[in-house]
Each structure stands twice: as structure tokens, then as C-alpha cells.
């Protein structure tokens, strides 16, 4: 497994507050759903070995389908890091194959997710979310600068 997605953000907040975004259902419900989606369910069992159930619901204009995910916590270091495995699930929290819940077959399964919290200053916290997947080769692509190379190749072959 290798890095698949890695995003960071510096928040104007103490690490204790940023941490709560992951531990308090009321906050999870406000951020899990993408834009215009809602998150009607966030059953958070924030403990190593336990599993949380979250749901994102599409807007009615997009069919209003609900997509459930489970996060199984593998390691929690208070105010430092959270590690969990993401999977698609049914409404009871049973793991499902992407195709079973109407997602494309290439939707990643068993996505190991690492969230780290770094106190950068008073009321300043840098949070980084990294998703690892079996096909993490994508980041390898990025590391190789292949996109750039592709541009060059396109220029060469396009002429």
C-alpha cells in the first residue's frame, strides 16, 4: 500500500478543538458529506478496535441515495494521530463491496487512513489526512513527475 491521497490544512484552532472534529458526532455530521450532501448518521465509537458508522446522503436532485461507510480504528494517539480503515457498508455497518452498494467497481476498498495533528503555535494546528490504498501507485505516478513527462511526450508526439 502506498499513499493515494494526501491533504493538509492549517487551522486557526487549538489541537483539542481540531481533534473534536473527529470524536464528536455533531461535528462529523457537519463535514463528512461533500458539498450539497448531508450526513444524517454519525455513530461514532471512538476507541481502538471499535467501528464508527457514517452516512452521506446525496441531494434529492442527484437521486438522494445514502452511502454508508465504516471506520474501524486501528490506532489512536490522543491529540496526535488517528488511524482507521475505511470501507463502504450497509446501514447496519456491515462491510459491503462497492458494487453491492451501487458504487463503481473501482471504488477503493480497505482504505487505510491516517490523520495527524501538529501543534504549530497557539491556536494553530496543522492537520493532515492521508489515505493509503492498494493501488497507491497513483502517488508514485506523481512522484515520477509523469504528468510533466506526459506533457512533454504529448508535445513530442503531437508535432
Amino acid at each position: 500500500m502506498a499513499e493515494f491521497v494526501k491533504v493538509s490544512k492549517l487551522f486557526d484552532a487549538a489541537v483539542e478543538e481540531v481533534w473534536k472534529l473527529w470524536t464528536e458526532p455533531e461535528y462529523v455530521m457537519q463535514w463528512w458529506g461533500p458539498d450539497k450532501f448531508t450526513c444524517p448518521v454519525a455513530e461514532i465509537h471512538f476507541k481502538e478496535g471499535s467501528t464508527s458508522l457514517v452516512c452521506m446522503k446525496a441531494p434529492d436532485a442527484f437521486g438522494g441515495a445514502s452511502h454508508y461507510s465504516i471506520w474501524k480504528y486501528t490506532k489512536i494517539v490522543p491529540l496526535e494521530s488517528i488511524e482507521f480503515i475505511q470501507n463502504l457498508a450497509d446501514e447496519k455497518g456491515n462491510k459491503k463491496k462497492p458494487t453491492d452498494v451501487g458504487m463503481p467497481a473501482d471504488f477503493p476498498e480497505d482504505v487505510r487512513t491516517l490523520v495527524t495533528f501538529k501543534r504549530v503555535g497557539e491556536d494553530k494546528t496543522e492537520m493532515t489526512v492521508t489515505e493509503f490504498a492498494h493501488f497507491g501507485q497513483m502517488s508514485h505516478f506523481a512522484q515520477l513527475g509523469l504528468e510533466q513527462s506526459v506533457g512533454k511526450a504529448a508535445a513530442v508526439f503531437g508535432s
Binding site: 491521497v5 494526501k6 491533504v7 490544512k9 481540531v18 463535514w31 461533500p34 458539498d35 489526512v129
Partner: peptide, 15 residues
């Protein structure tokens, strides 16, 4: 990646 960027944006608003 964009999905997570959107979530981080939401988190900023929540904080």
C-alpha cells in the same frame, strides 16, 4: 483528493 479538500474547507468553517 478533491473530496477531502472540500471536507477540510468544511472543517475550517466548523472550527
Amino acid at each position: 483528493r478533491e473530496l477531502w479538500e472540500g471536507r477540510l474547507h468544511h472543517m475550517d468553517k466548523i472550527l
